[in-house]
């Protein structure tokens, strides 16, 4: 069957199998920032945005996202300039092996779109279900809070 959707703003048509997961389809078309950590909804490394909400791409049938806008970490940078969440992650030491980073970025985009000024507790609860085996979470949390500050400054 055909799947028509936009991926990182680009209208895309792909032939998919009816039972294929969104994660497998995205990786197949080259969006390998979408990581397969567990393939069962436990780790969050496959998180992408579907119409603005972060979901586990491994738990979504690709056929169901027909007509939606899907966002991956690969769509965050513009004209060679990193998104504030990406810069904050790099500058704040929130990336070690980096396997969890794309998923966490998408969670953070969803969080900040609904709650531009989260406190630490809100960032922590947003990150639950997103596993990082390297950083111990402190640096990613600090990076998201720092990026929230940058985004607010830019808006004002």
């Amino acid at each position: 069957m055909n799947l028509r959707f936009t991926v990182d703003g680009v209208p895309t048509t792909v032939v998919i199998a009816a039972g294929e997961s969104l994660m497998d389809v995205l990786r197949r078309i080259g969006k390998t920032s979408v990581k397969n950590g567990c393939d069962r909804g436990d780790c969050g490394s496959c998180a992408v945005l579907v119409d603005g909400r972060a979901v586990n791409a491994c738990l979504v049938f690709a056929g169901q996202v027909d007509g939606t806008a899907v966002g991956t970490a690969e769509g965050l940078a513009h004209d060679g300039e990193l998104h504030p969440l990406q810069s904050a992650a790099v500058e704040g030491g929130a990336v070690q092996c980096g396997f969890c980073t794309p998923g966490m970025l998408m969670l953070a985009v969803d969080l900040l779109s609904r709650n531009p000024e989260p406190d630490e507790a809100e960032v922590r609860s947003a990150l639950s279900g997103s596993f990082c085996r390297c950083t111990g979470y402190v640096k990613p949390i600090e990076a998201i809070l720092a990026a929230a500050g940058t985004l607010l400054e830019r808006r004002s």
């Binding site: 909400r53 972060a54 979901v55 738990l59 969670l107 609860s125 639950s128 279900g129």
Partner: peptide, 9 residues
């Protein structure tokens, strides 16, 4: 119930 990612779906 699960994680925010799960609850979003």
């Amino acid at each position: 119930v699960g994680s925010p990612l799960l609850r979003n779906r």
